[in-house]
């Protein structure tokens, strides 16, 4: 393998890993702060991709040129909004009514919500049953930098994710509300005794995590050029795997877990003969290995640090 090819694969792995990281962050936030495992989280990924696809048409019809900066920002805002709204609805109709119910019930209901969302897209989006081509944002297929062929979408995704993850870091670590989120994760009752509105913390947490998941869906559409109503399932499993690897409840662990998963997948795909058929298997193997040998995540005990 040449150096150029290795650099190229590293960039691919980075693009894939950061996408998984964005999904995993949601899983880990919901578990850490609200103590729910949200199996509907994969669907927000799919919804993000579909909203991006459908809003593209609307934005061009109001006069924005496809591929221009305002066009892309418009799509991004709509995708973030969709994710947030999905998260808020989840809080209102699943998390809040199920407070105090056994965990398994919440888990099953989120699974139900996931199926409903997926089927609704299949039925109500025109031609939703079939894969949808996702329009390209850039005219060029790839840029050649010193022999390394890079898709401009990959660069865009990496930059966008870095911005979003820095934003999340800032919110959680530096803002007053982020402090309330961490307090709620560490001791919910004590947080309430301090006068923190825990319900509001839950709503914001679900909105934040879901918005990031939706952007991951948009990135998936951009990178692969094709989206399908059932794409949320595999994405959900992988995001969950990454979160488990990083230690559920640990935001930075989830980001590391996503990266690890991305790099492993690309490594297997590019080195093992016929590796791409094993790509989806890797996350399952990792989850099982992790649960058996490092149930607290690869960071060991520190992973129990919630948020």
């Amino acid at each position: 393998m040449t150096i150029e090819l290795i650099v190229q694969q590293i960039l691919n792995a980075l693009g894939l890993g950061i996408m998984y990281a964005l999904i995993a962050v949601g899983f880990t936030l919901f578990f850490g702060v609200i103590e729910v495992v949200n199996f509907a989280h994969g669907e927000v990924f799919m919804l993000g991709a579909f909203v991006a696809l459908l809003s593209g048409g609307i934005l061009t019809s109001i006069g924005l040129t496809m591929g221009s900066v305002p066009y892309f920002l418009g799509i991004l805002v709509l995708v973030l909004l969709t994710g947030s709204i999905f998260g808020i609805l989840l809080e209102r109709f699943i998390v809040r009514p199920m407070r105090g119910a056994p965990d398994i019930m919440t888990l099953l209901i989120t699974l139900g919500a996931s199926i409903i969302t997926r089927e609704a897209v299949m039925l109500f989006v025109p031609n939703g049953r079939n894969p949808q081509p996702f329009p390209k944002l850039f005219d060029v297929d790839s840029i050649n930098i010193g022999g390394v062929l890079i898709k401009p979408e990959t660069i865009l995704c990496i930059i966008l994710s870095a911005v979003l993850i820095s934003g999340l870091y800032y919110i959680i670590e530096k803002t007053t509300f982020g402090r309330y989120i961490r307090a709620t994760a560490q001791d919910r009752e004590a947080a309430m005794m301090m006068g923190i509105n825990v319900k509001k913390v839950f709503i914001i947490t679900l909105a934040l995590g879901s918005a990031l998941g939706a952007v991951a869906g948009l990135m998936n559409g951009l990178s692969y050029g094709i989206i399908k109503f059932n794409m949320g399932f595999a994405a959900g499993i992988k995001g969950f795997a990454a979160a488990v690897v990083g230690g559920l409840g640990n935001v930075y662990g989830a980001i590391a877990g996503g990266m690890l998963l991305g790099f492993l997948e690309i490594f297997v795909v590019s080195t093992v003969p016929d590796g791409s058929s094993y790509q989806d298997l890797i996350s399952f193997v990792i989850v099982i290995l992790c649960l058996v040998f490092r149930p607290a995540g690869i960071f060991g005990e520190r992973a129990y640090e919630k948020v």
Binding site: T176, R179, Y180, R182, A183, Q186, D187, E189, A190, A191, M192, M193, M194, G195, I196, N197, V198, E305, K306
Partner: peptide, 30 residues
């Protein structure tokens, strides 16, 4: 609870319940 607390009740819970992974200053800010 948050409405009641905001009316002017300070609570020192049983077993202290400080936020363990936050600094002293962050605990005070919360």
């Amino acid at each position: 609870t948050e409405t009641i607390v905001h009316k002017g009740i300070g609570v020192v819970p049983e077993g202290r319940r400080v936020f363990p992974k936050m600094t002293v200053e962050e605990n005070l800010l919360v």
